[in-house]
C-alpha cells in the first residue's frame, strides 16, 4: 500500500511536467501580454516604458529560455511575481484566495453528499414513487442548467427578491472574528455552494439510485435476507457499503470538477477565491499567476484521484495495490 502511494506520487512528476509545458504553451499562444492592454489604455505613456518593463520581466527572451527560467524557479518553490498586482509575489496572491476556494469546495461537497445520498437511497428503495420521479426531474434539471444561469436565478430570487442570503462576498463586514465570522461566512457560502454543487448533486443522486438498485438485486443481499437480517441491516450494512464503491471513484474526479466549476461560480457571486483570481489573471495576461493556479489545480486533481484510489481499497477488500 505505501509502496503504491509512493509509486503513484512519483508518477505525478512527469504528469506535472507535461502539464507545465501545455499550460506554458497555451499561455504564450494567447495574443498580447500583460503590458499590451496598458499601452492601449493610456496613449500618453511612452511605449518605450512598457518595452523596458517587458525586457526586465524577461518577456522578450526566447520561449524555451523563458520556460527554463520559470520551471527552475518553480522547482525551488518560487512562482515569481505578478505582472499586474504591482509585483506582489504569486504565492502571496494565491495564499489569500486558496482558503476561500477550499472552504467553498468542501461546503459544496458536503451539501452535495448530504442531499444526494439519502435521496438516492430512497429512490432505489421506492422506485417509481412520487419522490423518485421528483428526484429524477430535479436530476435532469440540475445537469441541464448551466452553473452561471442557476447562480443568477438564485441571486435574483433568494438574494434580491426574498433577501434570505447575501448575493456576494464572504463576510458581512471586514474584520469579523470568532463565531460571528463563521456564521457570516457560512451564510455567504450557501448560494455559491448550492450553485457549485448542483450538477454534482444530480450526478451522485442518479448514481446512488442505480447502484443501490443494482446491489439490492444481488445474490449476497438475498443471502443476507435469508439469514434473517433486518431490512435496516440489509440496507445500511450490506447494501450501502457496496453501493458506495463507485461513488468514491466519482468523488475523486469531483474534487477537480469543484475547483474548475468554482471559476465560473465564484465570478457570478463575486466570491474572492482562486476562480476569480484565475479569470482576471487570464484576462490581464498575468501569466505567472495563471501558470501557478493551473499547476495547483493539476496537483489537486491528481491528489484527489490518489485519495479516491486509497479510499477505494479501504472500502473494497478485493482491491489491493501491491
Amino acid at each position: 500500500m505505501y509502496q503504491y502511494i509512493i509509486r503513484r506520487t512519483l508518477v505525478f512528476i512527469p504528469m506535472l511536467f507535461a502539464l507545465t509545458v501545455i499550460v506554458f504553451t497555451l499561455a504564450l499562444l494567447a495574443p498580447g501580454d500583460a503590458f499590451t492592454g496598458k499601452s492601449l489604455a493610456d496613449p500618453n505613456v511612452d511605449p518605450e516604458v512598457y518595452e523596458r518593463q517587458r525586457e526586465e520581466a524577461g518577456l522578450n527572451d526566447a520561449i524555451p529560455v523563458q520556460y527554463g527560467r520559470w520551471i527552475s524557479n518553480v522547482a525551488q518553490g518560487d512562482f515569481g511575481k505578478s505582472l499586474v498586482f504591482n509585483g506582489r509575489s504569486v504565492s502571496e496572491l494565491i495564499e489569500a484566495r486558496l482558503a476561500n476556494t477550499l472552504y467553498l469546495g468542501l461546503f459544496s461537497l458536503f451539501i452535495t453528499l448530504v442531499v444526494s445520498i439519502p435521496i438516492g437511497i430512497y429512490s432505489a428503495k421506492h422506485p417509481y414513487s412520487l419522490l423518485d420521479y421528483g428526484a429524477t426531474g430535479f436530476g435532469f434539471l440540475g445537469l441541464a442548467i448551466p452553473n452561471f444561469f442557476f447562480g443568477l436565478i438564485a441571486i435574483y430570487v433568494l438574494a434580491i427578491q426574498l433577501d434570505w442570503f447575501p448575493a456576494q462576498g464572504t463576510l458581512d463586514e471586514p474584520g469579523m472574528t470568532g463565531i460571528e465570522a463563521l456564521k457570516s461566512r457560512l451564510h455567504h457560502m450557501v448560494l455559491p455552494g448550492i450553485t457549485l454543487g448542483l450538477a454534482g448533486t444530480a450526478t451522485y443522486m442518479r448514481y446512488m439510485r442505480s447502484e443501490v438498485l443494482d446491489v439490492l438485486g444481488s445474490d449476497y443481499i438475498r443471502t443476507a435476507r435469508a439469514k434473517g437480517m433486518s431490512d435496516r441491516n440489509v440496507l445500511y450494512k450490506h447494501t450501502l457499503r457496496n453501493a458506495l464503491i463507485p461513488i468514491i471513484t466519482l468523488m475523486g474526479f469531483e474534487i477537480g470538477m469543484l475547483l474548475s466549476g468554482a471559476v465560473i461560480t465564484e465570478q457570478v457571486f463575486n466570491y474572492p477565491g482562486l476562480g476569480t483570481l484565475f479569470l482576471s489573471s487570464v484576462v490581464n495576461r498575468d501569466f505567472p499567476v495563471v501558470m501557478a493556479i493551473a499547476m495547483l489545480l493539476g496537483i489537486l486533481i491528481l491528489v484527489g484521484n490518489l485519495l479516491a484510489d486509497i479510499f477505494y481499497s479501504i472500502i473494497d477488500p478485493r482491491i489491493r495495490y501491491d
Binding site: 445474490d219 449476497y220 443471502t223 439469514k227
Partner: peptide, 18 residues
C-alpha cells in the same frame, strides 16, 4: 436463518464481498 436456513446455487456471489 433460525428455523429455516438456505444454501444457494452460486457460492461465488452469495457472500458479501466487502
Amino acid at each position: 436463518g433460525n428455523d429455516i436456513a438456505m444454501v444457494f446455487q452460486e457460492p461465488m456471489t452469495a457472500l458479501n464481498p466487502v
